[in-house]
Computed example of a mutant assay.
Amino acid sequence: MVCFYIVGDDLNERILIVEGITDKKKINKVLKTPVEILCTHGTLGVERMEELILDHNLDHRPVFILVDEDDSGNKLRKQLTSELPHAAHIYVDKAFREVAATPEHELARALLSHHFQVKPVYLI
């Protein structure tokens, strides 16, 4: 297996932002190595967004956004993009709509495309 490294991206500093706890559980099932995952539980108010940015040093870390392909997910993605323009976006197929409903092998491929280490069993 070939390993990819992104210049300036410390893999231990990566942070993944998702909507809910079921998304987090599904992603943790697929990941081979631990990654800090933040749940927003929907769109964020100004104060909560500021807290997340400061508490997790998001302005100075590699941030990845993986949210549902629905109206609320798109609204959250837009909000996060405006506050964290350096964040990379990971998308699930619109046919599945939700991260939690995405088959593990599809989720593994999406994460692998952004150089996350995933369990080989999901790379079928």
Rank of each mutant, 00 (worst) to 15 (best):
V92I: 08
L80N: 04
H86M: 02
L58R: 11
I65G: 02
L76V: 11
H60T: 07
L52W: 01
D71M: 12
E83S: 10
P85T: 08
R77E: 15
G73F: 00
D68H: 00
K78G: 11
Q79K: 07
E83Y: 11
F64W: 00
E69A: 14
I53K: 06
L54M: 15
H86S: 03
P62N: 03
R61D: 12
H60C: 04
D59C: 15
I90M: 00
V63W: 00
I53W: 09
S72T: 15
D93A: 14
H89W: 03
K75E: 07
H89N: 10
H56A: 04
F96Q: 07
I65E: 00
D59E: 04
I90L: 06
D59I: 10
R61Y: 11
E69W: 01
F64M: 04
K75T: 06
Q79E: 15
L66D: 14
Q79T: 09
G73H: 03
R61Q: 03
L54G: 15
L76Q: 08
E83D: 06
D93Y: 06
I90R: 00
D93N: 15
F96R: 09
V63M: 01
E83W: 14
T81A: 12
R77Y: 09
L58G: 01
S72H: 00
A87W: 11
A95L: 10
A95T: 08
A95W: 01
H56G: 03
D93K: 10
A95S: 07
L54Q: 12
V67L: 14
I90Q: 00
R61M: 03
I65N: 05
V63Y: 02
L66T: 12
D68A: 07
D93C: 12
L52H: 08
F64P: 05
H89V: 13
L80R: 03
N57T: 13
E98K: 09
L52T: 14
D71V: 09
F64H: 04
F96Y: 07
E69Q: 04
